[in-house]
């Protein structure tokens, strides 16, 4: 799969390229700032763009803005944003802007250390999944709210909800929790019922419904 990598720190860019290539990705271009990323993505039309959020020239959320620009003209290019700190609001905006387009991911930068699972996340994103960092999901679930229906969920169902929000399929959730897929299906149905959501047939898209709910 073809990737464009955007990261202004040369060391980290090197590390990212190393991790991705070790796992069989083809890095077709690297960029060091927002405008450069937009140019390279439009030129190479890769399967996925992996970008740091904070980049020159503004050193604010340049990566996010570049990603949204790319999405506007090339909605099929999947996007993975990396950050040193994950924010619920940004995750929500990112997924809401995704629409029916390519996969979307939002991960902590340090996830690249575990190359194997990082690359598997990138592949899921390329297949159209929405992948959120466990820390964002934990923040969303842990957010203190009045009359929070999530508090009424059993611990097991909360685990299932968290994995759903991270973008895992029922099969993957079953593997991770060592349950049967049928049992997972039952838990998922319960979670939907408890939260007053309608079940979504497309497992890749259902994460958006969950995030929209959690982000309220």
């Amino acid at each position: 799969m073809r990737v464009v990598v955007a990261e202004d720190q040369a060391l980290l860019r090197e590390g990212l390229v190393l991790v991705l290539e070790r796992d069989g990705f083809e890095v077709v271009g690297t960029a060091a700032d927002g405008p450069d990323l937009v140019r390279k993505a439009r030129a190479h039309k890769p399967d996925v763009v992996v970008a740091d959020i904070r980049m020159p020239p503004t050193q604010t959320d340049e990566g996010l803005r570049a990603a949204l620009e790319i999405r506007a003209t090339h909605p099929r290019i999947a996007i993975l944003l990396l950050s040193q700190h994950v924010q619920r609001r940004l995750a929500q905006e990112l997924l809401e802007g995704a629409g029916e387009s390519g996969g979307t991911g939002y991960l902590l930068k340090q996830r690249i250390v575990d190359g194997e699972s990082f690359c598997s996340d990138v592949r899921r994103i390329c297949r159209g999944a929405s992948v959120l960092d466990p820390e964002v999901v934990a923040t969303m679930l842990g957010r203190a709210r009045r009359d929070d229906p999530i508090e009424r969920l059993t611990p097991r169902r909360r685990e299932v909800l968290a994995l759903m929000a991270e973008g895992w399929t029922n099969a993957a959730i079953a593997r991770r929790l060592t349950l049967t897929e049928k049992a997972v299906l039952k838990h998922v149905a319960h979670v939907y019922e408890q939260l007053g959501l309608t079940t979504h047939p497309d497992e890749h898209r259902r994460v958006r419904a969950v995030i929209r709910y959690l982000g309220r």
Binding site: R54, T60, S83, H85, Q87, R88, R89, L90, T139, A144
Partner: peptide, 23 residues
């Protein structure tokens, strides 16, 4: 806070409140 640098005051305060144990 990274959120303050990246997204400004409102986003950073929202992020702060997200992590506070009371509503």
């Amino acid at each position: 806070p990274a959120a303050l640098t990246e997204r400004g005051l409102a986003a950073a305060v929202e992020d702060l409140l997200d992590r506070v144990p009371i509503p």
